[in-house]
Design a protein around this nucleic acid. Structure first.
Length: 558
RNA sequence: GGCCGGUUCGUCUAUCGGCUAGGACAGCCCCCUUUCACGGGGCAAAGACGGGUUCGAUUCCCGUACCGGCUACCA
């Protein structure tokens, strides 16, 4: 165990120059700042070395898991595995009003499907349980009070109506959304404006109240983001965020800090939308006295709509006809189901692969990676800063590549399920299925394509595209196929090679070019102008079925 | 509005001061295939703008523009 920790620590930080690369300083600063770089480096180095890598994904259970969410999971997972660390799933269900039943189970199932299972979670357990914030409710208040005592937070008794009133009162053209900040707090009902006695009394009477952070007046908060480098904020610009709600639940801001500390999180990855509240979190780590244990932050770029601009949302998927959620999600309230990548026919390997490439690359031209390869090659410093527009066409390309790449055995059960979904029942041990998969996989982009591309192996085509034959159909061809039926009925062997020879010999005897006959033959067997080599198909579906399909089409052509 | 972040082909991206700016998806053309694909070859397509710094900027700095995020007792 000890050994593992040491090794994990070392691999986090392979060499000091690597740390330097992550946060390049402007060249013009190198000389004046060289002293601080030298001072910083060993500190960072020590810090990382002494810490076991522990990362967490902390979703709120409010619905289906979005592309961006799964990518955050992926990056967490890759980082943890790469450094021999732990990957934790923590459910952030502090908003009781938004809780959606089934969402947590859905998240777990999604991680399972993706192959990104956590080491610790509400169901996997772990040494830092519970992993649901609602179950940790009792632990937050003391920290909020500690902050109040230290003068870094205060009680606020403003009612929702009063807050609303404040917003309309201070609203101007220049300031369309006034914040509860260091200037406005002086005009509100809180323990800063009320005298101590009054505050005591309100508290004693259990008057509903929240705890807000007291943003310092004139400070610049800086930190080094693993993706963005140095980021800074001025405290005058950030508001007094609520830390503890009137219902006693913490807000995300308090909970994330308390729990990241309690769970010994070493690196915190989250979406870019969290960047503006980062100074609040930084301050909390400091005020709570945990500054030395603060995780390293990485704010991931957003995944954007393919058209226009803005964050990708479930609505965009509905509108443009592609999945946004990893798996089907049924809203328990409306009963409405939103399609997922899994049900659309994506392989988890492809899904994970395409997500990894949304904002990251290994610096080579390679785009196809297994999870294991990603674990080896991933590096947070190579994550792109800018948001990426989601391209469904490219997503499908990844799946196609993976279908071609994956071994037949790995496809059997998924393909079987795709057939089942279309009402074609194939026995689990049907020896034909693997052969069919092998034969058609190169032309399938999504799993359901196997039904179109291979269905005719299992049942005669429901409709035959005779229109594709008719224009060039004549008595000579009709005669040829009549003779072909007899020839095939008399065949003593049944393999693609012999079938082709017989076919060509018969064509020659009838003074017809084989080429003119192969398309009609194909349409007879598969129902349309597609599919693998026509004699391979005949060989596989067998003598009886081949003859029957020719006979059937001939009757349609009468 | 304010704050923060971002900006290379239509899209995802490479480039860590030397670029004839590379790859992939999509598009178009050709070859292979007497089907559809796969595969192979090719074409077209990009550094937002303006200033610096530099012998030399896509790359470093500043400004502008544009895009995005945040601005809840939601996460």
């Amino acid at each position: 165990m000890m050994n593992d920790e040491v090794r994990g620590g070392f691999s986090t930080c392979p060499s000091p120059p690597a740390v330097r690369q992550v946060h390049p300083f402007p060249s013009s600063f190198i000389i004046p700042c060289s002293i601080s770089i030298i001072l910083l480096l060993p500190f960072d180095y020590l810090c990382i070395m002494s810490k076991k890598v522990r990362v967490r994904f902390a979703p709120s259970p409010t619905g289906g898991l979005h592309l961006g969410g799964v990518r955050t999971v992926l990056f967490n997972y890759l980082f943890a595995r790469q450094h021999g660390g732990d990957f934790i799933l923590r459910i952030e269900d502090t908003d009781q009003g938004r809780f959606v039943p089934g969402a947590e189970e859905y998240i777990l199932n999604t991680l399972k499907w993706c192959g990104l299972e956590p080491d610790e979670s509400p169901v996997h357990g772990g040494p830092y349980a519970p992993y649901r914030q609602s179950e940790r409710k009792a632990s937050y208040r003391q920290y909020a009070e500690q902050l109040v005592k230290a003068g870094h937070a205060y009680y606020a008794f403003d009612t929702p109506a009063e807050l609303e009133e404040m917003r309309t009162r201070f609203k101007t053209a220049e300031n369309p959304s006034p914040q509860y900040n260091q200037s406005i707090r002086q005009q509100m009902r809180n323990s800063l404006t009320l005298d101590a006695k009054e505050t005591e009394q309100l508290l004693a009477e259990n008057v509903p109240h929240v705890v807000r952070i007291k943003m310092p007046v004139d400070e610049t908060i800086r930190f080094t983001d693993m993706i963005r480098g140095e980021v800074s904020f001025h405290t005058s610009q950030v508001d007094d965020k609520v830390l503890l709600k009137a219902d006693g639940m913490p807000t995300y801001h308090l909970a994330v800090v308390v729990d990241d500390h309690a769970m010994k999180i070493s690196h915190a990855f989250r979406g870019e939308e969290w960047l503006p509240s980062a100074p609040v979190h930084l301050l909390l780590w400091k005020y709570l006295g945990w500054e030395a244990d603060m995780p390293q932050w990485a704010h991931l770029p957003l995944i954007l709509k393919p058209d226009g601009n803005g964050k990708l949302s479930k609505r965009d998927g509905d509108r443009l006809g592609f999945p946004v959620f990893a798996m089907d999600w049924t809203d328990p309230k409306t009963g409405e189901t939103t399609i997922g990548f899994k049900e659309r026919g994506f392989l988890p390997e492809a899904f994970v692969n395409l997500l990894a490439m949304l904002g990251w690359n290994d610096g080579t031209d390679n785009e196809l990676f297994t999870l294991q390869q990603l674990v080896e090659k991933f590096s947070i410093e190579r994550v792109h800063k800018g948001g990426a527009k989601f391209d469904y066409e490219k997503a499908k390309w990844f799946n196609h590549e993976w279908i071609k790449k994956v071994a037949v055995e790995g496809l059997v059960s998924e393909v079987n399920a795709a057939f089942e979904a279309k009402g074609i029942h194939i026995a689990d041990n049907d020896a034909l299925l693997p052969k069919v998969i092998e034969m058609v996989k190169d032309r399938c982009t999504l799993l359901p394509d196997f039904v179109q591309q291979g269905g005719f192996f299992f049942q005669a085509p429901v409709t035959v595209d005779t229109d594709a034959i008719k224009p060039k159909w004549d008595d000579k061809k009709n005669l040829f196929f009549t003779e072909l039926i007899r020839a095939y009925e008399l065949s003593s062997t049944w393999n693609a090679h012999d079938l082709e020879n017989e076919f060509k010999e018969l064509a020659a005897a009838n003074q017809l070019k084989p080429g003119e006959l192969m398309l009609p033959f194909r349409v007879m067997l598969v129902g349309g102008k597609f599919g693998p080599g026509v004699f391979d198909i005949a060989a596989l579906i067998g003598q009886t079925e081949t003859v029957q399909r020719i006979t059937h089409t001939l009757s349609l052509l009468q």
